Simulated scan of single mutants.
Amino acid sequence: MTTPHVPAVTRSLLVRIEAKPGKAAEVEAFLRSAIGLAVEEQRTVHWFALRIGPSTFGVFDTFADEEGREAHLHGPIAAALMAKAPELLATAPVIERVDIIAAKP
């Protein structure tokens, strides 16, 4: 049996999202619906939508290189989130560019 090849990931994004009061369910629904777009992104290796607290959410995604990370930042998920931000988010998303220094394949 062979092990599937998983590209090495060296870049990631860690995004913190705070929903406006009463909008947490809509933010969660948005993030759940974004999985289809994430699957279509060829250069996004992993994509996770997270619930951190009652109104706090996050996204963690990984990329093999900087070009993949940049493509994601300018892709359809980011555009859709920014379009919904005035309606759903209490503050602008906090986007951190993270370099991965070790990972379990």
Score class of each variant (00 low, 15 high):
A49G: 02
A49K: 01
A49E: 09
L50P: 03
L50Q: 10
L50C: 10
R51Q: 14
R51S: 10
I52A: 14
G53D: 14
P54T: 13
P54E: 15
P54Y: 12
P54N: 14
S55M: 11
T56A: 14
T56C: 14
G58I: 02
G58M: 03
G58D: 09
G58V: 06
V59N: 01
F60R: 01
F60E: 00
F60G: 01
F60A: 02
F60D: 01
D61E: 14
D61L: 04
T62V: 05
F63V: 01
F63H: 00
F63T: 00
F63I: 09
F63M: 02
A64C: 06
A64N: 01
A64V: 05
D65R: 11
D65W: 09
E66I: 13
E66F: 10
E67P: 10
G68C: 13
G68F: 11
G68I: 08
G68K: 03
R69H: 11
R69F: 07
R69G: 06
E70M: 15
E70S: 14
A71E: 11
L73A: 14
L73E: 12
L73F: 04
L73Y: 06
H74T: 15
H74A: 15
H74I: 10
H74L: 15
G75Y: 03
P76N: 15
P76V: 13
P76L: 07
P76F: 09
I77G: 04
I77D: 00
A79S: 13
A79Q: 15
A80N: 08
A80F: 10
A80H: 12
A80W: 06
L81Q: 06
L81V: 04
M82T: 13
M82L: 13
A83F: 08
A83P: 05
K84A: 13
K84N: 06
A85S: 12
A85D: 07
A85E: 09
A85K: 03
E87Y: 03
E87I: 10
E87C: 09
L88W: 03
L88S: 01
L88M: 06
L88V: 08
L88Y: 05
L89G: 00
A90Q: 10
A90H: 03
A90F: 03
T91C: 09
T91W: 01
A92G: 05
A92Y: 03
P93D: 05
P93C: 12
P93M: 05
P93N: 03
I95P: 00
I95K: 04
E96T: 07
E96V: 05
E96Y: 02
